[in-house]
């Protein structure tokens, strides 16, 4: 892979990846970490990309996988820190304030959040979301429905 290919991919898709990463996790450092994880995965996988899928779909797939893995790692890390904080081994930092637009999204679980972002913000068809997330289409629909309900309620609450 030439650096130019990577650079041009980065130029073409950076905003899309940032939009998902920055709404999927809320801490500034986490957002940048996840964004970098996605592009490192693209960098690593680019030589194996055979062009069978559309580049855009492929970038979405890498982003979704990286985001899901990141969320899993974060959950484990947080649990570990909570245990250490309870044992007074480490100081538990208060969570960073979430910006207004992210507040309703922060009420969703990671799966609902990803499905809602892909469906309503990125406007991907449900079949593609099922393929990207590896979920059955019925599960995608139910997660989307539940996610929308929660967000609507939060939006109404916050005016």
């Amino acid at each position: 892979m030439s650096p130019l290919e990577f650079a041009s991919l980065y130029e073409a898709h950076k905003e899309k990846v940032w939009r998902i990463a920055s709404r999927y996790v809320f801490d500034r450092e986490d957002r940048e970490d996840l964004f970098q994880e996605v592009w490192l995965a693209v960098h690593k996988a680019l030589k194996n990309f055979r062009g069978e899928a559309k580049v855009e779909t492929w970038i979405y797939r890498v982003t979704v996988n990286a985001a899901i893995n990141y969320a899993k790692k974060q959950t484990l890390y947080r649990k570990g820190r909570q245990i250490l904080a309870a044992l007074r081994v480490v100081y538990e930092h208060p969570p960073e304030a979430v910006d207004d637009l992210s507040v309703p999204l922060s009420k969703l679980n990671p799966r609902q959040r990803m499905v809602l972002l892909l469906a309503d913000v990125e406007e991907r068809p449900l079949e593609e979301i099922a393929e990207l997330t590896g979920l059955p289409i019925g599960t995608v629909k139910s997660n989307l429905h539940r996610g929308r309900e929660i967000v609507k309620k939060e939006v109404m609450k916050n005016g």
Binding site: E15, R19, Q36, D99, V121
Partner: peptide
């Protein structure tokens, strides 16, 4: 709300991240 999410993402320095 969804329009707001589409239009505005938190600010970021793409060059530095690159």
């Amino acid at each position: 709300y969804i329009q707001g999410l589409k239009k505005s993402a938190p600010p970021v320095d793409y060059n530095q991240l690159y």
